[in-house]
């Protein structure tokens, strides 16, 4: 039996920066998983992926990643996606660094 479809986000790496990006419902790209579009329909997910793949000047290696709804937006269900939206665990680099800087500004 085919496995039930689980919600997805479209994610990729940015061509110039190399960092993790997500597709929004407005068909723009965001660096925040919370701002990504959570896709609950399987056919729609494939279509959205094709749309992402048609933007090779922005997104590299687009794929569908499992996600679940959260209070602020999509949340990861797998630790790989948790690392991708955060950064490495040995230094406060990557997305967590940008967040720390943003907090420091406030």
């Amino acid at each position: 039996m085919a496995r039930a479809f689980t919600p997805k986000v479209v994610t990729a790496n940015d061509l110039l920066e190399g960092d993790v990006i997500y597709l929004t419902a407005a068909n723009t790209w965001t660096r925040e998983l919370h701002a990504a579009e959570l896709i609950t329909d399987e056919a729609e997910a494939q279509l959205r992926l094709l749309e992402a793949q048609s933007q090779p000047q922005i997104a590299v290696g687009a794929y569908l990643a499992d996600a679940k709804p959260g209070e602020q937006g999509p949340e990861p269900t797998h630790f790989r996606e948790e690392f991708r939206r955060t950064g490495p665990s040995n230094y406060a680099h990557g997305k967590q660094e940008a967040k720390l800087e943003a907090t420091a500004d406030v």
Partner: peptide, 25 residues
């Protein structure tokens, strides 16, 4: 960057020059 090469065309070229695309960068 200007779109003349697709990622599929560029990837073997960048790899041959040591450039990977990893999790965060």
């Amino acid at each position: 960057i200007d779109g003349a090469l697709t990622e599929d065309e560029f990837k073997p070229l960048r790899l041959m020059n040591g450039l990977y695309l990893q999790l965060h960068a």
